[in-house]
Design a binder for these strands. Sequence first.
DNA 1: GAAATTATGTCAGCCTTATTGACATAATTT
DNA 2: AAATTATGTCAATAAGGCTGACATAATTTC
Lengths: 166, 166
Amino acid sequence: MTDADPIKTPLTLDDGVDFAIIEHLFFAYRDFTADPDAILDEYGFGRAHHRVLHFVNRLPGLTVAELLEVLRITKQSLARVLKQLIDDGYIVQIPGPRDRRQRELYPTQKGRDLALALALPQSRRIRAALEEAEPGDSAAVERFLRAMVNPELRAQMDKLPNGRSK
Amino acid sequence: MTDADPIKTPLTLDDGVDFAIIEHLFFAYRDFTADPDAILDEYGFGRAHHRVLHFVNRLPGLTVAELLEVLRITKQSLARVLKQLIDDGYIVQIPGPRDRRQRELYPTQKGRDLALALALPQSRRIRAALEEAEPGDSAAVERFLRAMVNPELRAQMDKLPNGRSK
DNA sequence: GAAATTATGTCAGCCTTATTGACATAATTT
DNA sequence: AAATTATGTCAATAAGGCTGACATAATTTC
């Protein structure tokens, strides 16, 4: 009986849980993804296309298998999205030079342009958020977000180019 | 012709976009949601159930309309998820005292327990991430995440109980 | 050189979470 | 009494995942 009774007091920070950051992450991520979502809509693409396009631009020449590992989705899930991006001329496949079974994935100029257009509002939002911040906050945020990732997956992040790499 | 050519240089920070934080957010949020997702699976629930259960626990007595506004989904999307949570005894509906058309939503003890169980690994992850951090980083992270939210939606966040309440 | 393994592609079917539009009911407001 | 409001429900659709099965070509192994 008592188990079906309504509980009228809210869960609060007193319950030993950091609801503030949990909820801040939820709302921040929602608005963060809303920017590119609006653009993608105009192209008939979704968030899945964005992720593929993004990583192909950040790691040009990566293979299908490598992409699957970064995205942690199945081959069949990737197939539909990747096929569209190729058919529409945003990404091209080139047989691997060593192993000709592999398909190296590269963006076209069209794909590069769209990737940048999608990243721009996100970068703008981040810059605006950091303008209201104290100096050093940027590094703190990056450290925190990195520490939120499973340790065994941090190596993946380190593979991404982080600076002037011609 | 040139438009279909592969581009072999990666997008880097030089392109004027803060890819570091963009990607850190992506990876951090993915692992952050993986924790509760694993628990929800055992109950036959998904992420949608989590969100409903969370906000009903944080704002007990909120109405269906209020919940729709927080979640920004449609009535029809909420219906299925909410019905399951009610049928399974995690949430109860009580006719609004003023307006008997309204249904106030409250968690049961079972619903309170599950909400806490879902929040715990997330809170643990946050605590662990902050242990490696400098003092003051926690506040910096919270400020940053808040600034990432659309200004007009920040008011919604302020409605959530943030401290010792009763 | 034959056999096994690997990288990729593709087909078919299913699930979850979201959407829109339409309509029903009960309660409140005008 | 009529209009509006809060909620519930039905039907159809879409995106983005999933699994399992099978095909093909290229490489590796024996």
